[in-house]
Simulated assay, not measured.
Amino acid sequence: MKQIVNILLCINLLWSPLNSFGQSSNPAERDSIQIQIAHPSGLAGQDNAVSLLEKRLTQAVVLNGIASATSRFLLVTDIHELSSQVTTSTPPQYVTELEISCYITDQTEKTVLQQTTFNVKGVARTKAKAYQHAIGSIQARNPKLKTLINRGKEKIAAYYQAQKEE
């Protein structure tokens, strides 16, 4: 019985269409609207926090079906520390507030198509963990992130439509 189930599973995998990175099944849309995630900048020495943010942004783009390993359109992220304080409580806690700016840019024409900013706070026993908690509060299904990606998609589609008309 297990062998039959395994054989059926293998046949199903071979015959089902697989779209890498959750791309659209419409070939024209799939080939034209793709966004690549750029490595976030602004957090030197905070590799775990940067990696977490990169994963969350990748998840968000994949959920919207336009992720790509290479594309002329980039989702660029810049992180600035607004404040970082140590509480007077025992044990001391670090309270860090970050501003995370996300831009969808066109590498070829050097233009910004869409932009949004998140202000996030993190509290933890170490500064590194406070950064991770702050960045961890940004979820892949965040409405602001979804709006950024959808409006960016619309502007990319409008760009390609204008190119077809020329």
Rank of each mutant, 00 (worst) to 15 (best):
residue 148 L to T: 02
residue 17 P to F: 07
residue 32 S to M: 11
residue 7 I to H: 14
residue 88 T to S: 14
residue 76 V to M: 08
residue 165 E to D: 13
residue 42 G to Y: 03
residue 117 T to S: 15
residue 139 Q to C: 12
residue 155 K to C: 00
residue 50 V to K: 08
residue 17 P to G: 14
residue 86 V to P: 09
residue 15 W to R: 12
residue 115 Q to P: 13
residue 118 F to D: 00
residue 125 R to D: 14
residue 12 N to T: 13
residue 29 E to W: 00
residue 47 D to R: 11
residue 75 L to F: 12
residue 133 H to S: 07
residue 7 I to N: 15
residue 14 L to V: 07
residue 111 T to V: 11
residue 40 P to H: 03
residue 137 S to T: 07
residue 134 A to Y: 04
residue 39 H to K: 14
residue 151 R to T: 13
residue 25 S to N: 14
residue 109 E to G: 08
residue 68 S to T: 04
residue 37 I to H: 04
residue 90 T to Q: 14
residue 60 A to K: 01
residue 80 H to W: 08
residue 14 L to N: 06
residue 98 L to W: 02
residue 61 V to F: 01
residue 8 L to R: 10
residue 36 Q to N: 06
residue 59 Q to P: 03
residue 95 V to Q: 10
residue 90 T to H: 13
residue 26 N to D: 07
residue 118 F to P: 02
residue 5 V to H: 11
residue 146 K to R: 11
residue 75 L to G: 09
residue 136 G to T: 05
residue 85 Q to R: 14
residue 101 S to A: 13
residue 35 I to N: 03
residue 71 S to V: 05
residue 29 E to I: 06
residue 111 T to I: 08
residue 51 S to G: 10
residue 42 G to S: 05
residue 115 Q to Y: 15
residue 153 K to Y: 09
residue 123 V to P: 01
residue 150 N to Y: 11
residue 23 Q to D: 09
residue 129 K to R: 11
residue 70 T to V: 08
residue 63 L to K: 12
residue 89 S to K: 05
residue 138 I to G: 04
residue 6 N to W: 05
residue 160 Y to D: 03
residue 152 G to V: 03
residue 2 K to P: 15
residue 49 A to R: 01
residue 20 S to G: 11
residue 74 L to V: 07
residue 134 A to F: 03
residue 121 K to E: 13
residue 14 L to C: 10
residue 125 R to L: 15
residue 164 K to P: 09
residue 152 G to R: 01
residue 84 S to R: 09
residue 57 L to S: 03
residue 66 I to W: 03
residue 72 R to H: 06
residue 2 K to G: 15
residue 67 A to C: 02
residue 92 P to V: 06
residue 35 I to V: 10
residue 51 S to F: 06
residue 33 I to T: 08
residue 14 L to W: 02
residue 8 L to S: 14
residue 118 F to K: 02
residue 120 V to P: 02
residue 100 I to E: 00
residue 161 Q to H: 04
residue 62 V to A: 09
residue 124 A to C: 01
residue 110 K to S: 15
residue 166 E to I: 12
residue 151 R to N: 15
residue 43 L to G: 05
residue 49 A to D: 03
residue 11 I to F: 12
residue 49 A to C: 03
residue 120 V to N: 03
residue 90 T to W: 10
residue 61 V to C: 01
residue 38 A to W: 04
residue 65 G to W: 00
residue 82 L to R: 11
residue 117 T to L: 08
residue 38 A to G: 14
residue 154 E to K: 12
residue 47 D to H: 12
residue 154 E to V: 10
residue 159 Y to W: 04
residue 23 Q to T: 12
residue 137 S to E: 05
